[in-house]
Amino acid sequence: MRFAVIGGTGLIGSQVVNDLNAAGHEAVPHSRSTGIDVISGKGLEEAVAGADVIVDLTNSPTFDEASPAFFRKSMENLLGVGERSGVGHFVVLSIVGVDKVPELDYYRAKTLQEELLAAGPIPYSIVRATQFMEFIESVLSWTTEGDTVRLPATPIQPIAAADVALAVAGVAAGPPLGGVYDIAGPDVFALDELGRITVAHASDGRTVVTDPTAGMFAAVRGDVLTDRSAHLAPTRYTEWLA
């Protein structure tokens, strides 16, 4: 099978390309660095031509009120070229619980992306993942002042990017789900607890203080999977840190 991986040079995309190619498929990465633009449409016709599957791993440049416009336009362009090219499967990566946090601009934007895909002309699959382990340090940096990190006790179930990529590749190589595939890490933490584990590993002198109002995750009621049908990845956070 031939895959056009849009956003295929990023953290997840590059690994999805490697996983698909290792499985004997032909996966081609596309991104701004390879000459495409999902907003203007530049290069999309050529990128998607001949592909059986589109895997969309693009992301908006900001997480604010501008993000819905990004996903609306990018989906309009990608669905259009995909339909014209006869693509039979369209896969996007989203966030577990994304439709349950309308208070956040970015979560509303990703929900919009899912809705546009589901209403579109191409059979689809949505892979929803929990917070990437690779981004935990960034989450801490958002609310760091000096040596103090303020974090809410929001439940979080971090997953390794490699596990996310493998799940995306597996879903993309299969038949369209016409729905959602949830994947999360194997362990549940309160975010403040996870912060303490992270700074202890770094041994950099930071102190984590519990603050229910701190940062973006203060608005998130938890991306913990309670559905028994959800898929749990194997990599544990402490193993990943090590």
Rank of each mutant, 00 (worst) to 15 (best):
S94H: 10
S14R: 15
S125C: 12
V53Q: 10
D105G: 04
S229Q: 10
D187E: 15
V17E: 08
T58W: 05
Q113T: 02
D19F: 02
R32H: 04
D223P: 00
T154H: 09
V208T: 04
L11I: 12
V171Y: 10
V188F: 11
G178T: 14
S94E: 13
D19M: 07
Y107Q: 09
D37I: 00
E83L: 11
N77D: 12
T154M: 03
P123V: 00
M216H: 12
A109H: 04
G170T: 12
A23I: 13
T210P: 11
A172T: 12
V224R: 13
V224E: 13
E137H: 08
A233P: 05
E26T: 14
H30T: 03
F217R: 10
D163W: 01
R84H: 06
L194P: 02
A119M: 12
G35T: 06
A230P: 02
S67T: 05
V48W: 06
N77P: 11
H201D: 09
P61Y: 06
T144R: 14
P158M: 04
R221A: 13
A230T: 10
E137T: 08
S14Q: 15
G222C: 09
V220A: 15
D99V: 02
H25T: 00
S141C: 00
E83P: 12
E239R: 02
G179L: 01
L177K: 08
I36N: 04
A165Q: 12
A161Y: 02
A119F: 07
N21D: 05
V96P: 02
T58G: 10
P102K: 14
G7T: 07
A190V: 11
R228F: 06
W142V: 12
V188L: 13
L232P: 04
R206I: 06
L117S: 01
P61C: 05
A129V: 01
I126P: 09
G174L: 02
L78H: 07
A219H: 14
T9C: 10
L241C: 11
D192P: 05
D37G: 05
E26G: 13
T207D: 07
V127F: 11
R32M: 05
G41A: 04
D105R: 08
S14K: 13
Q113R: 14
V168K: 15
H231A: 04
Y237D: 11
G97Y: 07
G86D: 14
Q15H: 06
V149D: 09
V38Q: 03
I156S: 01
F135R: 00
G170N: 08
P29N: 04
V91M: 07
S85N: 15
G86R: 14
P102Y: 08
G35C: 10
F189R: 05
G80I: 08
A167T: 08
G120A: 06
V224C: 07
L116I: 12
H231T: 06
R196F: 15
A167N: 07
P123N: 06
G179T: 09
L166A: 14
G35S: 03
F189V: 04
E76A: 15
D204C: 02
Y237I: 05
